[in-house]
């Protein structure tokens, strides 16, 4: 499947259009992020499928932000799935990346991955390779919505009680770019307490995900306590879409309702 991608990237590199391609490489049986600068390395290119489809994904956009801070005048290509493309759009709006310096290399997700993700759009508009999969109707949020209010409280309390406050969800998040984080602000969140304030800690993060979360699901994958974080953030997306008509990462010109300062 990676043939088209390899050829496109090789051409970009040879023609000097990009300084490097940020993608994934397989080495010694491990898949890891890699900045391809030499076309010859492309034979080891990985698309993030190791044992299962998309089980070796990384927050490439997060690395891209670091790269572009170090080399602001250079142009880079980056491997993007549907979620990553949504992420790029928001990061352009938040001025964390410069659109004219980024060339997305679009990869569509296989049905198996789209189903596991309950993905609303499992392919980027800028699709180069891979399938243009169908929207998957979600069950995760619906299952919690269907519980009565006391059952919901018991459900989330038990889930959040397992939190060891490793901050893995935040650290892996490609959309968390703040230099100062509320979750580490001692005046707001008690330090040295495990589990952290339940449910405040996780609701604070959920609120901060408004207009940011692009539903990549890396937080839930990273969580050592198996907290269904994605269900929580999917609900946030549902609320923002239903109440304010905003869908994060689907448009290039529209900003999150929580970022627009309305003066009447």
């Amino acid at each position: 499947m990676s043939k088209k991608i390899k050829e496109t990237v090789r051409t970009l590199l040879v023609e000097g259009k990009i300084r490097g391609f940020l993608g994934l490489i397989e080495r010694d049986g491990h898949v890891m992020p890699h900045l391809f600068g030499d076309p010859q390395e492309l034979e080891h290119l990985s698309l993030g499928d190791h044992g299962r489809a998309g089980d070796a994904r990384y927050p490439l956009n997060q690395i891209l932000i670091q790269l572009m801070r170090a080399y602001p005048e250079e142009t880079f290509a980056v491997l993007v799935r549907g979620c990553d493309e949504r992420g790029l759009r928001e990061l352009f709006k938040w001025q964390q990346l410069r659109e004219e310096k980024v060339i997305p290399i679009g990869l569509g997700c296989p049905e198996e991955l789209a189903r596991a993700c309950e993905c609303e759009k499992p392919f980027p508009d800028n699709l180069l390779d891979g399938p243009k999969g169908e929207k998957v109707e979600g069950q995760k949020v619906a299952r919690v919505n269907a519980m009565d209010i006391d059952a919901r409280l018991r459900f989330w309390k038990a889930e959040f009680d397992r939190c060891i406050k490793c901050l893995g969800c935040r650290n892996i998040c490609p959309m968390c770019f703040c230099k100062e984080c509320t979750l580490e602000e001692a005046n707001l969140i008690d330090s040295g307490e495990i589990p952290p304030a339940n449910p405040t800690f996780h609701l604070v993060r959920a609120i901060h995900m408004v207009g940011r979360c692009i539903d990549c699901g890396l937080c839930e994958e990273a969580c050592p306590a198996d907290i269904p974080l994605r269900t929580l953030y999917k609900k946030v997306a549902e609320i923002v879409s239903e109440e304010f008509g905003y869908k994060t990462g689907y448009t290039v010109d529209e900003k999150s309702p929580f970022n627009i300062i309305e003066v009447k």
Binding site: V144, N145, I149, D150, A151, R152, L153, R154, F155, W156, K157, P199, L203, A206, I207, L232, K235, V236, I239, E243
Partner: peptide, 8 residues
Amino acid sequence: KLLEFSGL
């Protein structure tokens, strides 16, 4: 809305 979803 989020409180409602969390069981409050």
